[in-house]
Amino acid sequence: MVRSIVDCLWRGIDDDLPALLMAIITAMISVDVFLRDAAGAHIPNGVEIATYAFVWSVFLGAAGASRRGDHFHVDLVQNSLSGRPRVISFVLVDAFCCVVAAMMTVSSWQYTMRSWRRVSEGLEMPLGYFYMVFPIAFALMALAHGCHAYRNIFRRNSP
């Protein structure tokens, strides 16, 4: 029960939210172009909003790719291996990616915390709101790679 709730939330964050953001970006830019051409008007700060939404969709999408096991692969080496060496290579790659993502989580958290004193140019909001996606996405990536390594070590859904 708890696992299905967590899976649903996780998929919503790193699959559904990026898709929703891309739909919003597409609609907003299309309306902005139409308004510019037809009425000589525009959506105030539309480009800035679309840029931040795009960054959010890319980083959350990367977290989703990590969860699905599609983000970091060394297929050339891993496909030529079988049995225990193959499992060990998967564990090593996922463990390495987990460590890198964890280090990026810490670094991006520190960067985001420093960004609260700066404001965005058009929206005049603290940049921390927009940069918060970095530690969130890297933490999700670290968690995903850690889970993959754990599953491979204990032979649950091994590759």
Rank of each mutant, 00 (worst) to 15 (best):
A38S: 06
L60W: 02
M104S: 07
W56P: 01
A101M: 08
T51G: 13
A39Y: 15
A95I: 15
R36Q: 10
V58F: 12
G61K: 04
F54M: 13
V74W: 12
C97S: 13
F90K: 07
W56F: 00
T112A: 06
S115N: 08
E121F: 15
M125L: 13
G122H: 03
D70S: 13
R86C: 03
G64Q: 01
L81V: 10
W56C: 00
V106R: 08
V91W: 03
A41L: 14
R68Y: 07
A41N: 11
S108G: 02
G46I: 02
S82W: 14
V47E: 14
T105E: 06
M113R: 10
W116Q: 04
C97A: 15
V33E: 04
S115A: 15
F59Q: 04
I88K: 07
F54N: 08
F72Q: 03
A39W: 14
S115H: 09
Y52N: 00
M113D: 14
R118P: 04
F34W: 13
W109Q: 08
M113Y: 11
A53G: 06
A95Q: 06
V58K: 03
E48P: 06
V99M: 08
E121C: 13
P44I: 02
D94H: 11
A50D: 00
L60D: 02
P85W: 08
L76F: 14
E48R: 07
M113I: 11
S57D: 04
A41V: 12
L60F: 07
R67V: 05
R114K: 14
L76H: 08
A38Y: 07
A65F: 06
A101R: 02
R68C: 08
S80C: 12
V119M: 12
Q110L: 15
A65D: 07
F54L: 14
S82T: 12
A101N: 07
T112P: 00
W56A: 00
G83P: 05
I43F: 05
H42T: 14
S80H: 10
H71D: 10
G122I: 01
D75K: 00
A95T: 14
I43R: 01
S115P: 08
A39F: 14
I88T: 12
R117W: 12
A53F: 12
H73C: 12
M113V: 10
I43D: 03
I49T: 07
E121K: 09
L60A: 04
V106N: 05
L76K: 07
R36G: 13
E48W: 06
D70T: 08
H71I: 10
V87P: 07
G122Q: 04
T112G: 06
V33T: 04
V33W: 04
V100E: 06
A38W: 05
E48Y: 05
S89V: 03
V106H: 09
V55H: 00
A63I: 00
D37G: 09
D75R: 01
H73L: 14
V55C: 05
